[in-house]
Design a binder for these strands. Structure first.
Lengths: 222, 222, 222, 222
DNA sequence: TATGAATGAGTATTCATTCAT
DNA sequence: AATGAATGAATACTCATTCAT
């Protein structure tokens, strides 16, 4: 913002800039406080505009929340797109996705917080976001192609569903970040950078290990 | 409680029963709505008592929330204790813990919701619950013994930290339940009993697979 | 209380003792907090009994307040009676009354506080205390005799109404005590024992000076 | 305020008018009921605005109370200033101050009530009003000049502290007004205009008599 | 007589939302 | 397009008073 060209008094660009400012402030506010505890006043102040603007741009609190939630998904999708998974060797592609996911969860804490909040509310809002499925399907498609490639190369076992794989990845990346406060308090886990990085390595190892076409792998231990 | 003398309809014993009623209603209310959206009125009504009783028994909303959070931990600990992990073969013990964890998350949804809520608040409350570490340390101790046993029996690899293992288990069990609403909406996952049961099996397989003392396991795929 | 004879379990004396305990606690509570801010709970705790006892002994909060107000008057009357004004020379009697009044206001702060509170409420309660006039009339009668005596002795001027004199005395003794907090804050008056004692002397001098049969006294300065 | 541009019906100037309306309503409410019994609802209704405005303009009940208390002092200072004591002969100046004080106490009953309330609370609030000393110091300065002038003219005795004199004046003016309800009930004083006016004369005579440089005045009667 | 348990009726305070300019 | 002013509807919390034993 500081490096932006000098602001013109009015015009179409200002509207978009205002919209962005509100959206980003809302994303922070909703993710830090949750839906109920988030304050429209706080969003207005953080965005540097007056409250009525928010209503004029977004409608009401719920609509603003929906926009913030969607923005969280848009951001992670944009990050995943930049990975260019198709250009990497399958094992590298998966490892890359795991690392990106873990890091994104860690560095953009509002994503996890928004998901937590939304799931607490029973997912009412996400259903109403029409294109949310499209947003993610790109990544799933790419992952499917990576898996196919890996099977063809003999480095992945067959029959893996990309969605299930993504859920495994997300599971392992999500919990240590989303629950870091309770982990620290209950298990005395030292949730610092070193621990988190170690955890990230362990997670990517585990995910890749699970993909390997090892004959004696599962279901033979009972 | 089980050893208490038979409860009279009314009288001095009402105090304890009232306390329990409030606590259980609060656990449901806080977990369904989150901290900010939870209503003291709703707790009172669900508990079948008047609002002032809540203040008389618990102090204020925050204290009631803290009591509910603690109760969530007490409940899962009680369940884990009943597993008697020490009496089972190591592999069985781990599988049993995974299944219990998964099922508890699924069947007592307030546990996950309370953790989500608490982590959203930055873990302020859990830190103030003095004995929360003790509550879980039993389970960790037992898990450590199971791991040692498994290493001695040659069915588990060496050097596994019980806390890290538990975090892996919890990660894999937590996410599919806690994020079921967004998963359904975003990935069109059919989050029904069949899917959840399949997921549970996949998770326990994955956990056990990761424990196996396979020489060519990790770090050799880059 | 510590030196009281061993308490019998029940009996007529206990009832009276309980009554006194409640009354004294109420006097303190009402005078320290005022009518609205006084808490029945606080009275019960200070009296060392349960709340229902207060209702059983006094009826309700207003009745308890009335009893406490009456008690404040009874106490000051008892003090005035002990002065035995009739046994003193007129000048001494007046000085004695001034000093007693000043000291009583200072040492039994609840009297002033109760009067403040009652006047804030518009004197609704004091009107309902049937015998409150009788309580004070003794003192006024004695003061009238002192004044007559003084006139006969030639030390007081004639035509002084005892009630007006008492109002003058009370005025001068009341304000420096009742308003000590605002005096300190607004005028930086050092409201300590030395100041208060000096004020007491000034007040008694002023009162006696005003009583003296000096020819060129009043009304000649306009 | 008198010099402000003509007020438009609505618009930005409403803010100041609303503020005044709240402040005046608060002054009446707090003085009539005391701090604890005063109702924010009542203030809002009397001011003709909604409750949230009070919080927006003043913060909370305590801050509103503090503003009302300060306003009471500002009002009496403004009145004292108009007296122009410096332009009067010393005796007249003192008599004028006494009469003004007495009349102000009588006609603006909220001043006495606010002081009573504040002293009941132990003066906590007045201490936090930073400029309360300045508010009154003008009057004390003027009074000091009047006393000096009177000494020079030979109409006042020497060595009188203006603060002590003001306390004497205030004492004698305060009590008959502040305690009018209990005086009526206890001493059957007919607290009507006639009595009050007579009292006012008696008070100013007494104050001036005490100032006169009469050789045989005090301390010689014991 | 005495009390722990319980509550109805309030009260200060907040916040999403709209109005008027 | 933008905002300071305003509010209706809620919500946490309190307290005098009563009930049941």
């Amino acid at each position: 913002m500081a490096t932006a060209p000098p602001k013109r008094k009015t015009g179409p660009r200002d509207a978009e800039r205002t919209r962005r400012a509100i959206l980003e402030a809302a994303l922070v506010e909703f993710s830090e406080k949750g839906h109920a505890a988030a304050r429209i006043d706080a969003v207005a102040e953080a965005a540097g505009i007056s409250k009525p603007m928010i209503y004029s741009y977004f409608g009401d609190k719920d609509a603003l929340y929906a926009a913030a939630l969607r923005e969280a998904y848009v951001q992670i999708r944009a990050g995943e797109k930049e990975l260019q998974l198709g250009d990497l060797a399958p094992v590298e592609a998966v490892r890359s996705l795991v690392h990106f996911t873990f890091d994104h969860f860690r560095q953009k804490p509002w994503f996890i917080s928004m998901l937590n909040t939304e799931n607490l509310l029973g997912g009412q809002t996400i259903q109403s976001i029409a294109d949310v499925g499209d947003i993610q399907s790109n990544m799933i498609s790419e992952l499917r192609r990576v898996l196919d490639h890996g099977v063809r190369d003999g480095v992945f076992r067959d029959g893996i569903d990309p969605v299930e794989l993504y859920i495994t990845i997300a599971s392992l990346c999500y919990f240590p970040i989303s629950n870091r406060h309770t982990l620290r308090a209950v298990f005395k886990v030292p949730v610092d950078d070193a621990w988190v990085e170690a955890r990230k390595r362990a997670v990517s190892d585990m995910v890749l290990s699970d993909l390997r076409p090892c004959a004696k792998r599962e279901g033979d231990d009972v």
